[in-house]
Design a protein around this nucleic acid. Structure first.
Length: 909
RNA sequence: GCCUUGGUGGUGGAAUGGUAGACACGAGGGACUUAAAAUCCCUUGGGCAGAAAUGCCUGUAUGGGUUCGAGUCCCAUCCGAGGCACCA
């Protein structure tokens, strides 16, 4: 039999599906392991070879864990709500559901062809009502909860109501509460609900006709579509994730994630511990207390002015009659600017004097109050004290408007720039004089608190997540408006199914498509017309896989207590500040209310790198239809043209295929070098427009899925981004053929029952150890190298005793060929159910051994000699050393490394 | 500007502080073939010496340092990638 990968792969993929080889159940007799891929958004373009990289890695890990005796949950599904399907629907009139289902089917075909061990009986789709029922359910729970800072956890809103009725809460007294109307009570509770509706400054994207979350905007443009985004005040549904900021931040320490990813989340959450300080202000004779936030109270003696955000409510009160006109003009100008314009003008400094004066609570000095867009209304209190000597932004402002700059650290030079470092000795600072800056920071905080000037305060950069989208293709909110009061649709009436519609366009009036749906009402009351954002459906999908068909709960207690949380999550870094934050928040919320048993959803996270494309170029001589090979192109004036990488092999152009590629190249002429046309190349993003997209289906067709899997892993470390280059694939393909030939010599079965030699066992067990170590740290490329080395060492070994374990070792990587050989070896079941071969150290002991010889604590020499060497020979060797080494004095520990016959190194410690 | 990474042959990449370049691709040479494919063998960082076996020098972005010994650890510089960017 020859290695007919097409036949073999088809056969086993069918058999796996028939026999449900990868179906998994909660099995109390086995330890569990949950391996998860970030589920894909099924786009119309299908998969290219870059997409499955992470899936292959997790598949190998899942299969490995299964061999190791774990019950492995490894599911897959689709993140199916989203903008592209809807945009496409607007253009073509096709219902997004139709295109989504088509795309999903295409994805499924492509995935199946690669031979993944997903338990497809657990598939989820976020756009399926049986799934989004639970997204809506979670929203209702959030609507019905508040964040209790005393418990540092979410609690049912009924507890807050009780508090309000009996003792009041914060600025709401019992009397106020009891006197409030239904509508007023609803408004009061909105201030604390986890899912709440509130007026806020949002990222409005006119091009998409919807608002966007912060992570959906980059450089002032929408991530999807690249339309400009501006700031707008709007009433929107939001999730109070800012209430949780501290917990996800502290929780990071317990997670096995990469440092860079944790750092990204830390920056995104952005904790800063500082002080709120009250400044008295005077404006046209009126006094007003203004609270500012600073992390550097120690610099308070250097305050020379104050700044308010233009959007701050204080602006009106602190504007003098004289400055009124100037201030109004300025605020109007700022408001007109889009986010993008603000960013592009980072270097320009703008502002206006308000006419008010602040009084430094420590010095009693009067400082002017300014208004500038460099202070943000959404952070801190929207007001700051400015210390130009020690803050670069204040410095730029002071220079521009000629405000005084007072240094308060000895010897620092502020003639060119501010001195932001937290080092040096304080001066010009009253009681702080002479202190080290680091000590002064704490001392100043204590002083402010003791003297009632201010209090310690922790602020977070993290904002609440805007949760409504003015779109059609998303989860409807289970909320209706009863006399204008947002009211939840009862749980038993979920799911609230998206209504059928003919047009998905937003009418342009800021009204979402659902506003134009017929009968979009509940019990005669109007329903909420916006829908939930993309991250809603992806925030808890990993929980649903545990128990995907449960009609009574998102996940049953039993299933949740067995699978608990994701042990290994594989996906791209692009979700660092979106999905991975929302999911952690969502999970913590469900944890607080006792619906799940783990506080963190993803224990270990591996970020796979991007697979870049490798583009090829041909060089057309200007004004002709003649193409010149790379090596000769400098002799002509040429234009570089992208050429389809699929008609280029090892950078050599297939001339006939090129002529057939496009009509305009039908009569192309070539100037060759050594009879060949060599193409140029570059590493670029894999995309259709660069003609560098490689389809996994094509690779499976020519080389087989096993080769594809092996090659993707052989390219390099998972975490690294690397270019795809098909030309290297022959190496791993050859390896598989060679492996096959150990079983079938010239097509004849040739496995024997001879006992293995010592050398063969050594090769095998070295490989077992290597694979165990490497898979645990995702170093698959080195494991594959180890396989190649082992095969080289084994030579023409046809012994069952060696080959059988080899099949098991290799099967996580290349399951099809291994199943086939496993069956040929006479086994009934799937190789997936084999046991991972036991590693026996005794087989691998080196012939050379290291003898540490300690003379006396000071220096150590180790002698590495043939294992056969007698103690006397070792001693002779060591005794010979101190005379030759530099360190002959005193007593020593010596390490000598001897490669058979030759001393190569002496170590003295 | 800040944070996080990384810089090793023609290419992808290996190296618990201990023979740098494993493994693979590509390239060159050879064997088997009428021929091709397939397969197998040899060479392959650079330089020098030698008829040859082989030997020597040099080499991991740059410059310093620690160490008997540095691709690996420390300091500075340069370059690339990713993230954040008026967050007080």
């Amino acid at each position: 039999m020859e290695y007919d990968f097409l036949e073999i792969e088809k056969k086993w993929q069918c058999r796996w599906a028939q026999q449900q080889t990868y179906k998994v159940k909660e099995d109390a007799s086995k330890p569990k392991f949950y391996v998860l891929d970030m589920f894909p958004y099924p786009s119309g373009a299908g998969l290219h070879v870059g997409h499955p990289l992470g899936y292959i890695a997790s598949d190998i890990y899942s299969r490995y864990k299964r061999l190791k005796g774990f019950s492995v949950l490894h599911p897959m599904g689709y993140d199916a709500f989203g903008l592209p399907a809807e945009q496409y629907a607007i253009q073509t009139g096709q219902h997004p559901e139709v295109t989504t289902v088509n795309n999903i089917n295409r994805y499924r075909q492509q995935l199946d062809r690669i031979g993944f061990c997903y338990d497809w009986s657990r598939e989820v789709r976020t756009c399926d009502p049986t799934f989004y029922k639970w997204t809506q359910w979670a929203f209702l729970k959030m609507f019905d909860s508040w964040y209790d800072p005393a418990a540092n956890a979410a609690r049912p809103i009924s507890e807050l109501v009780k508090k309000l009725e009996s003792e009041g809460y914060e600025d709401v007294s019992v009397q106020q509460w009891n006197a409030a109307s239904e509508k007023e009570k609803s408004d009061i509770l909105m201030r604390w609900r986890i899912a709440y509706q509130g007026e806020t400054s949002v990222n409005w994207c006119e091009g998409l006709g919807t608002v966007l979350a912060n992570d959906e905007v980059k450089d002032g443009l929408s991530v999807r579509g690249g339309f400009p985004v501006e700031q707008k005040k709007m009433k929107q549904w939001q999730l109070r994730i800012s209430a949780y900021a501290g917990r996800p931040l502290d929780g990071l320490d317990t997670l096995d994630w990469s440092d860079s990813l944790k750092e990204m989340q830390r920056n995104w959450i952005g904790r800063s511990q500082g002080t709120e300080v009250e400044f008295d202000t005077v404006c046209d004779g009126r006094h007003k207390k203004v609270t500012i936030f600073t992390t550097r109270v120690d610099t308070i003696f250097g305050v020379t002015f104050m700044v308010l955000a233009p959007e701050s409510e204080l602006v009106d009160e602190l504007t003098s009659a004289e400055q009124k006109q100037a201030v109004e003009d300025y605020v109007r100008e700022v408001r007109k600017k889009t986010e993008r314009e603000r960013i592009s003008e980072t270097k320009s400094v703008t502002g206006v004097f308000s006419g008010a004066w602040g009084i430094n609570p420590l010095t009693g000095e009067k400082v002017p109050v300014w208004i500038s867009e460099y202070v943000l209304s959404g952070y801190g209190t929207g007001a700051i004290m400015a210390v130009p000597a020690h803050d670069s932004r204040d410095y730029a402002f002071a220079k521009k408007f000629n405000l005084p700059i007072i240094p308060i650290i000895e010897g620092c030079d502020v003639s060119e720039s501010s001195f932001d470092a937290k080092e040096g000795r304080m001066c010009n600072s009253g009681f702080l004089n002479g202190m080290d800056v680091r000590d002064a920071i704490e001392a100043a905080k204590d002083y402010a608190e003791e003297h009632g000037i201010g209090r310690r305060k922790t602020n977070y950069r993290l904002r609440d997540a805007i949760f409504s989208r003015q779109r059609y293709w998303g989860e409807p909110f289970p909320i209706y408006y009863k006399d204008g009061i947002p009211t939840p649709v009862p749980e038993e009436d979920l799911p609230l199914v998206l209504p059928e519609m003919k047009s998905f366009k937003s009418a342009g009036d800021g009204q979402p498509p659902l506003a134009h749906a017929e009968n979009w009402t509940y019990k005669g009351y109007p329903l909420e017309t916006s829908t939930m954002p993309g991250f809603a459906g992806s925030s808890a999908y990993y929980l649903r896989y545990m128990d995907p068909t449960d009609a009574d709960a998102l996940v049953s207690r039993e299933a949740n207590e067995y699978w608990r949380s994701v042990d290994l999550y594989v996906g791209g870094t692009e979700h660092a500040t979106g999905h991975l934050i929302y999911s952690r928040f969502w999970n913590k919320f469900l944890y607080d209310l006792g619906y799940v048993c783990e506080d963190e959803p993803f224990r270990k996270l591996v970020n796979q790198g991007m697979i870049q494309g490798r583009s090829n170029f041909v060089y057309r001589v200007v004004g002709t239809n003649t193409f010149v090979s790379l090596g000769l192109k400098d002799q002509y004036e040429t234009t570089e043209i992208h050429v389809d990488v699929n008609i280029v092999h090892a950078d050599k152009l297939d001339l006939e295929a090129f002529r057939a590629w496009r009509p305009e190249f039908k009569d192309a002429e070539f100037i060759l070098e050594n009879g060949e046309y060599i193409c140029g190349w570059a590493i670029e993003k894999m995309s259709k427009s660069m003609f560098n997209v490689v389809n996994p289906d094509d690779i499976c067709e020519t080389y087989g899925a096993d080769t594809l899997r092996l090659y993707e892993m052989f390219l390099g470390p998972i975490e690294q981004s690397k270019p795809w280059d098909t030309k290297g694939i022959d190496g791993v393909h050859r390896f598989l053929r060679k492996f096959w030939r150990l079983f079938y010599e010239r097509g004849q079965w040739c496995v024997t029952d001879e006992p293995a030699t010592k050398a063969e066992l050594k090769s095998l067990h070295t490989l077992i150890r290597k694979e165990q170590q490497d898979i645990e740290c995702f170093s698959y490329n080195t494991t594959i190298s180890a396989f190649m080395i082992a095969l080289g060492e084994l030579g023409e070994c046809h012994k069952r005793a060696i080959l059988e374990p080899l099949v098991v070792l290799l099967c996580p990587f290349t399951p099809h060929i291994c199943e086939e050989l496993w069956e040929a070896l006479g086994h009934e079941g799937s190789v997936c159910d084999a046991a991972f071969p036991e590693f026996v150290e005794a087989y691998t002991v080196e012939d050379n051994v290291t003898y540490p010889v300690q003379f006396n604590g000071k220096m150590r020499f180790t002698v590495d000699l043939p294992k056969a060497a007698s103690p006397a020979e070792v001693e002779t060797a060591v005794r010979a050393l101190p005379q030759t080494a530099k360190y002959t004095e005193g007593l020593a520990i010596v390490k000598v490394i001897v490669v058979p016959g030759r001393i190569i190194n002496i170590v003295v410690r």
